[in-house]
Design a protein around this nucleic acid. Structure first.
Length: 593
RNA sequence: GGACCGGUAGUUCAGUUUGGUUAGAACGCCGCCCUGUCACGGCGGAGGUCGCGAGUUCGAGUCUCGUCCGGUCCGCCA
């Protein structure tokens, strides 16, 4: 193959008069009849090559070239004629006057245009992913991804962390999601599970004396997909021995700041820390977007004696809350928009969306406009306006009802209002959320871990047993712009404590032994205290590239039904394969080939 | 499991509300012309299983039902 002497972006004024050669794709061909221009693209950028009719042979060849042909071309670098400099190109002051042209490969016409001026549906993009990845946006996303992983590795290596790989073919563990399962040929009827995270392995490595571990770990969860969720994804997994929560938090804060600084030249500033309970109280969610200045204000007490049942019932119910969101610029919202918001909070179980428009707060009730105002006493209204410090033009939204419904619906509304009314006050707002409860109750009334069953509760075993629902942990989530970037905790290293936590979750010793005896055994053989965290690497890149979807930062992602449009995976297994794996279909006729 | 949006030329879309002649546009593609363009330009041309299947109707891209595919969200994802 003919070798290039330079890459496209290296062609500059310094090379004027020199004979050089380049290789790349014809991004665009402009044929003027008497002169032909190619914009040639390689991984560095674009350069213009000019073909003149004096050199009949290569001119003819150039006429036969089409977009996305792969070529080698040689020629003399020269300054562009006056008035033809292209300031949009790094190499735009010069061009190559071609003396040689070789077509290294041709290309069929593309199924879609690669330039930034045309839009393409995602289905087509995914089907021809190899072409989609040629586009500038995808190139820069994946290149940033590589850069970020490099900075993270350097940071962790520099802090004496070492990377250790853990198996993908492993055993189902008591983690929350549905497992991807792989049949065993050698053990009929037995299955491997792909890891949902390397959690148990990294704790085991702590018992093994690798005091500082990290890994870019592929994780698999067979759950329904979202714009920010893929069935296989990458975690930056970190664990360290002899450290407490603050040391992990400090390390990871520094790490994330370093990555943003070195990859994007962004200074993230301080990472405020707020407790789980404050986060829920103020934002209704454990991953608040702190770019948004709106906070919930609890107004339950005001309505204890109100005649307005919609409010007085939750006001007198232990499990309910009444939260108000006082929104500046709310006057611009139309009736239609408010109706849409009402439908929107309905998705989260809210039965309605009460609101008050504040037209002139000095006039008290007369200065307000709202369908609920006639049900509320003047005295309560006045207190409300004072508590909320209401100003002309505000609109106040209320969530009243069961805590989780109010929290979920109003938290989602808060995010939507932030976007619709352009309320966000900064580009980046990181924070830590700490002091998570150990357990919560699921809808069956059973205890489930908020984090996972290997998170260490604070306090003693006796305290935990006495009041498990009020036990707090040293778990911590790092949140950026309303996205959970990562989370972790101090782990249980005491065998007795681990037994108690598992028993509270309804897992007896025998079951624990069968599922992850290796961990309980490790805990009994000198496992040091340890703590760690995992970062959602794809989500982090999604934020850093300002992408709408996690699919835009993954080279070969799956669709919402977890299929791959490029490879057409998943596919059928042959009868031979199924026989070897001792698998038969029931209730599903396998198509005969 | 549920709600909603979309599927028409290679691509992005219009046309669907109110059923009616031969389904349009732009970009791309093909041909011819063009010596300074850079999203080149001009002229001409080809290109359609209106996702699929039933149904209603004299007649369906358009209405009804079902189904498949893509997407957003709820549930789910410790």
């Amino acid at each position: 193959m003919k070798k290039r002497t330079h890459k496209c972006n290296e062609v500059s004024k310094d090379l004027i008069g020199k004979d050089i050669s380049i290789t790349g794709w014809i991004r665009r061909r402009r044929d003027h009849g008497g002169v032909i221009f190619f914009d040639v693209r390689d991984e560095t950028g674009l350069v213009q090559v000019v073909y003149n009719p004096e050199l009949k042979e290569i001119f003819g060849l150039a006429e036969s070239c089409r977009n996305e042909f792969v070529i080698y071309s040689k020629g003399k670098v020269r300054e562009r004629p006056e008035g033809t400099v292209n300031k949009n190109l790094i190499s735009g002051e010069v061009e190559i006057e071609a003396t040689e042209l070789t077509i290294l490969n041709t290309s069929l016409p593309l199924p879609f245009q690669l330039d930034e001026h045309s839009s393409v549906g995602e289905e087509t993009r995914l089907k021809f992913r190899f072409l989609d990845l040629r586009r500038d946006e995808m190139q820069s996303n994946l290149r940033l991804r590589a850069k970020v992983s490099q900075v993270l590795r350097e940071f962790l290596n520099h802090n004496d962390y070492i990377e250790i790989e853990t198996p993908l073919l492993t055993k189902a563990t008591p983690e929350g999601a549905r497992d991807y399962v792989v049949p065993s040929r050698t053990f009929p009827g037995s299955f491997f599970a792909l890891p949902q995270s390397p959690q148990l392995f990294k704790q085991t490595l702590m018992a093994s004396g690798f005091e500082r571990y990290y890994q870019f770990a592929k994780c698999f969860r067979d759950e329904d997909l979202r714009a920010d969720r893929q069935p296989e994804f990458t975690q930056l997994d970190i664990e360290s021995s002899f450290v407490d929560a603050s040391e992990i938090i400090n390390l990871v804060t520094e790490m994330i700041k370093t990555v943003f600084k070195e990859s994007l030249d962004i200074d993230l500033g301080d990472f405020p820390v707020l407790s789980y309970s404050d986060a829920i109280e103020l934002y209704g969610i454990d991953k608040p977007d702190l770019r948004n200045p709106l906070t919930f204000i609890e107004v339950k007490d005001l309505f204890k004696d109100s005649d307005f049942k919609v409010f007085s019932e939750p006001a007198n119910d232990e499990e309910s809350r009444i939260a108000a969101l006082s929104v500046p610029k709310g006057e611009t919202l139309t009736r239609k928009q408010i109706d849409d918001y009402t439908d929107f909070v309905g998705n989260y179980g809210a039965k309605g969306l009460a609101y008050i428009r504040v037209e002139d707060p000095s006039k008290g009730k007369e200065g307000l406009q709202s369908p609920i105002i006639k049900f509320i006493d003047d005295e309560i209204i006045n207190k409300l306006l004072t508590v909320l410090d209401s100003k002309k033009g505000d609109i106040i939204f209320f969530g009243a009802g069961k805590r989780n419904i109010v929290n979920d619906s109003l938290a989602a509304l808060r995010n939507l209002l932030g976007k619709d009314l352009d309320l966000l006050e900064s580009d980046w707002a990181p924070c830590w959320v700490v002091d998570f409860p150990m357990f919560e109750k699921n809808n069956k009334g059973e205890l489930t871990p908020l984090h996972h069953p290997f998170t260490a509760p604070r306090g003693s075993i006796d305290e935990l047993k006495a009041d498990p629902l009020n036990a707090l942990t040293d778990a911590y989530d790092v949140v950026l712009n309303g996205t959970e970037l990562g989370g972790g905790s101090v782990r249980i290293h005491d065998h007795e404590m681990q037994k108690v936590v598992l028993s509270l979750l309804g897992i007896n010793e025998e079951q624990a032994e069968e599922k992850f005896g290796f961990l309980t055994s490790a805990l009994q053989h000198g496992c040091p205290p340890h703590a760690g965290l995992a970062i959602g690497f794809d989500r982090m890149i999604m934020l850093m590239t300002n992408s709408e979807s996690i699919r835009d930062v993954i080279a070969f992602p799956k669709t919402q039904t977890a299929s791959c449009l490029l490879t057409d995976a998943p596919g059928e297994a042959s009868n031979e394969q199924l026989d070897e794996l001792h698998i038969k279909f029931h209730g599903l006729e396998k198509e005969k080939k």
